[in-house]
């Protein structure tokens, strides 16, 4: 076909088309490579998630921000270098640097390199400078970069095909992976004398004991305690946690024993928290109750140890609805929180970045409501609910209306009064919600249920990362190891629950009293460990 056959006009179009085709055959890698590079990390994060935490719409924000960063860098590289290849390379360098800075900061945190460059800000600045230097080298380069860009384009085709395919597979054919079986080594009669009661274990993160709230905060919690007392609760005034970190406290109470083997098993200098998380998910308490015909209802949270429970018969809410996990992990790896806090400095909003993406107050509200209105079942019910309140971020005012999330970097210093007020407001709101929940639970129970409400540990006001014991003042230590507790144990005489009982022994008591389990009381003990070396236990009480 020749242009003469179709006249001049068509010839121009054809030439244009030919020009476009030849341009595309030359330049496609410079367009395709950065486009795929921008998509890679969000898709890689999505592909790494368990199917039940994945939602397609959660990818929108990470992809949009990635494309914005990459597009901006591409345009800058193109303008300065006057070549599409240079634009592509600057775009890829930009998006890779943006996508990895959070990961680099986390890896170097508390290391010697981190201290040498002046901490987080130094690491970010150096990473940014390295990316800029590389960009400059690309822009000023006089070598032909087409081959390198073609190589990157082909490499990213492989990468994105793999992670995109895996993500699509997860979304189209979700498969719930099976948790390991839990060995049941608790001796108890198969059918106890009493009819089974529903069991509610409600863990309130960082709820300090009323005695310490009065002594350290000047806060009178007696109205709340009186309301619980009127509903038949026992309130051991000197209740203490077994461990000062949530995942250890939960791992211990849910397995009805101390975690004495962990320092040896993992090493005292081990820094990883997540290796102990299976103790929370695969716990003996839930396994025992399920073996006795209980329906296990679990409340997933934004905190890793209680993010989901694959043994649960019902999760309220569904784990994927707690927060957008792709978004949460992606934000943790990238410079997005940094840009957000810089933007906040300009706009004057709260500049303390949240250490992780929490679930919203709306989600917490709905959990409080739904636990009081669970679907009916012919089975007795065991509810394990770990609420991330009154722990930070502060999400509630005293009347339970929502406030902008606030998670201070420090609990002391000039902002100390503000922090204390925010914590007490959240405690007041939690008190209100708990009374509503207890009333709803009682209303939906045929026989009076067992309700255990307890703080996993107290506050301590020691900042975001719990220090080692040597760096903690005695009052702060006391505050951390004094936790609120209130137990509704139908039929149990008040004097059979010691005033300083800890969670491990309360749960052993419940199984002993109601299920005739062979679980004699253990001696009471409380262990301290800092956030950096969580298995370096020191007995403090």
């Amino acid at each position: 076909m020749t242009t003469a056959q179709f006249g001049d006009n068509d010839g121009v179009n054809d030439n244009r088309e030919l020009g476009l085709r030849s341009w595309w055959s030359q330049q496609w890698p410079a367009i395709v490579a950065p486009m795929l590079a921008a998509a890679y990390l969000p898709l890689a994060v999505a592909a790494s998630l368990p199917d039940e935490l994945l939602r397609l719409n959660h990818l929108v924000l990470p992809l949009a921000v990635s494309y914005a960063v990459c597009g901006f860098c591409w345009a800058l590289g193109y303008r300065l270098g006057r070549s599409a290849d240079k634009g592509a390379l600057v775009g890829i360098i930009g998006v890779v640097a943006f996508s990895s800075v959070g990961w680099i900061v986390t890896q170097l945190a508390t290391s010697r390199a981190d201290r040498a460059v002046g901490g987080r800000v130094g690491v970010i600045a150096l990473w940014g400078l390295a990316a800029l230097a590389l960009d400059l080298a690309v822009v000023r380069s006089s070598v032909d970069l087409a081959r390198l860009v073609r190589f990157l384009a082909v490499t990213y085709v492989f990468l994105v095909t793999y992670v995109g395919g895996k993500t699509a597979w997860s979304l189209l054919l979700p498969a719930r992976d099976q948790p390991p079986a839990v060995s049941l080594d608790i001796r108890a009669p198969a059918t106890p004398a009493e009819p089974p009661r529903d069991v509610y274990l409600i863990v309130l993160d960082k709820y300090t004991s009323s005695a310490v709230l009065a002594a350290h905060y000047g806060f009178d919690n007696s109205a709340f305690e009186s309301e619980l007392d009127a509903r038949g609760f026992l309130i051991p005034g000197a209740s203490r946690p077994n461990y000062v970190h949530t995942f250890l406290a939960l791992g211990s109470m849910l397995n009805l024993r101390y975690l004495d083997e962990l320092p040896q098993r993992f090493g005292r200098s081990n820094r990883r928290w997540d290796i102990a998380y299976p103790l929370v998910e695969n716990n003996r308490l839930a396994a025992f109750l399920q073996s006795r015909g209980y329906r296990f209802v679990f409340v997933p949270t934004a905190f890793g140890a209680t993010r989901r429970n694959r043994h649960a018969d019902l999760q309220v809410p569904r784990a994927a609805d707690v927060r957008p996990e792709v978004h949460a992990v992606w934000a943790h790896l990238t410079a997005a929180p940094l840009f957000r806090s810089l933007g906040c400095r300009v706009l004057g909003c709260n500049v303390d970045p949240l250490p992780y993406l929490p679930s919203s107050a709306k989600v917490i509200d709905s959990v409080f409501h739904e636990l009081g209105h669970l679907p009916k079942s012919r089975h007795p019910t065991f509810v394990l609910a770990h609420f991330l309140v009154p722990h930070e971020p502060y999400l509630y005012r005293a009347d339970c209306t929502h406030r902008p999330p606030y998670w201070p970097m420090h609990d002391d210093g000039p902002g100390a009064d503000h922090v204390r007020a925010a914590y007490l407001d959240q405690v007041r709101c939690v008190n209100r919600r708990i009374i509503q929940l207890v009333d709803a639970i009682r209303a939906q129970s045929r026989i009076p249920p067992i309700v255990l409400i307890l703080g996993d540990h107290g506050h301590g006001r020691l900042g975001r990362d719990l220090p080692d014991l040597q760096q903690v003042s005695p009052p702060a230590m006391l505050e951390r190891i004094s936790a609120f507790a209130a137990y509704s144990l139908p039929g149990v005489p008040a004097d059979s629950v010691p005033n300083d009982i800890s969670p491990v022994n309360v749960l052993r008591f419940v199984l002993r009293y109601y299920f005739e389990a062979d679980l004699p009381p253990l001696s009471e003990a409380t262990y301290w460990s800092g956030a950096i070396h969580p298995y370096d236990f020191v007995r403090v009480r």
Partner: peptide, 30 residues
């Protein structure tokens, strides 16, 4: 660890494998 860990090792392995494949393809060694 407050997140589901995407696994830096897994991402690095993916990148390394894809880079080898990409290199082989671009240099027409297969």
């Amino acid at each position: 660890m407050l997140y589901v860990d995407p696994g830096a090792g897994s991402i690095l392995l993916q990148v390394a494998s894809a880079a080898v494949l990409g290199g082989l393809l671009v240099t027409k060694r297969w």
